[in-house]
Design a protein around this nucleic acid. Structure first.
Length: 341
DNA sequence: CCGGTATA
DNA sequence: TATACCGGG
């Protein structure tokens, strides 16, 4: 979901994947995994599964996309969520309830034979399991990539790594990393440039885009502190829906007139957690300096075994992708691209 | 989502 | 060469 500040962004620099070649990018791993779980499905919403009924949509997305990024010379550094912040509990409960409802409606739509409806609810019923998360970490390690464990929110950790310059940018579909202080955010970091419009039977071209924090702040005449306040007014993962009756327009005026204490005391607040503590969290979230961004080597045989024997991927396809991964390591790791190491 | 093949 | 369509697990 994420913070709803999209309207504030005037400049979105369209990128080609090759523009990112040779760069390290910190990816919000949970964001990516949820996307795979939602999108890697049959038309009626049934996910990819092994013969034992274990969902493999996430494995498929993680494996093929990551290989593609490597092929482009991009070094993906996946950052995994750690402990959930206490004030996320309400949002987590609400989403769990929404998922259960969606699951029921999915089954109903399937029985009625309404494929479009079924898919819609199937995508809302997704449930990322601990096992899927661990499997993704395994796939990445076997590809020779580092796995970064955030103490709390992955986006916060990714933003921190970008602000230190250990990676060039943070990548996510959500805008939260900007509030967490990422100087650069890359959205739509994927290969396929076409995306189905929800509901309609139409497609649009979607390319990777770059959003620069400095740009966003300057064009709106605000500081990061004020951006965080706007986020809290219009709604974040910690206060879904935001303050009633306040959209980005009014929020922008308000933050230019009041500091955080004044602002939050004037505004009707019906969430259980104090807005100031949410503000402090965005400003200075838990983060770790104890992480690795260096590549090791792909462990091709183990990777092949893991994908084919444990998750029933086609041996022919996996072998082909692994050859491409090895070639990427040879090409870029030896080819004078500093940032690979 | 991604890969591969059909189609033109 | 570009786009449509389908199967993957």
């Amino acid at each position: 979901m994420g913070v709803k500040i999209g309207e504030l962004i005037e400049r979105r620099v369209e990128l080609k994947l090759s523009d990112l070649s040779g760069r390290k990018i910190a990816l919000d791993a949970f964001n990516a995994m949820y996307q795979f779980l939602a999108k890697v499905r049959q038309p009626d919403g049934t996910p990819l599964m092994t013969s034992r009924g274990e969902i493999t949509s996430v494995h498929s997305g993680m494996f093929y996309r990551t290989a593609n990024l490597l092929k482009e010379g991009i070094i993906p550094i996946y950052v995994f969520d750690g402990e959930k912040p206490v004030f996320k509990s309400r949002a987590i409960e609400e989403r769990a309830r929404a998922r259960e409802e969606a699951e029921v409606k999915w089954k109903e739509a399937l029985e009625e034979g309404d494929i479009e409806e079924a898919r819609k609810y199937a995508q809302a019923a997704l449930n990322l399991t601990e096992e899927m998360v661990e499997d993704c970490k395994t796939i990445l390690r076997l590809m020779g990539l580092p796995v970064v464990q955030a103490p709390s929110e992955g986006e916060a950790q990714a933003a921190y790594m970008a602000s230190k310059g250990d990676v060039w940018a943070a990548a996510s579909q959500d805008y939260d990393s900007l509030l967490f202080g990422a100087p650069r955010l890359v959205r739509n970091l994927a290969i396929t440039g076409r995306r189905k419009l929800p509901g309609k039977d139409a497609y649009v071209d979607v390319n990777p885009e770059l959003i620069e924090l400095e740009d966003l702040l300057r064009s709106n005449g605000i500081t990061r502190e004020q951006l965080i306040m706007i986020g809290i007014l219009v709604g974040t993962d910690y206060n879904l829906g935001g303050v009633k009756g306040i959209g980005v327009r009014r929020a922008l005026e308000l933050v230019k007139r009041y500091g955080p204490e004044d602002l939050f005391s004037k505004v009707p607040w019906d969430f259980e957690f104090d807005p100031l503590s949410i503000y402090e969290f965005f400003l200075n979230p838990p983060k770790s300096d104890n992480y690795e961004t260096a590549l090791s080597k792909p462990r091709s045989n183990e990777l092949l075994k893991f994908m084919v024997e444990e998750h029933e991927f086609s041996e022919e396809r996996v072998r082909k992708v692994i050859l491409e991964i090895e070639e990427a390591y040879r090409t870029f790791a030896g080819g004078g691209l500093e940032s690979w190491f």
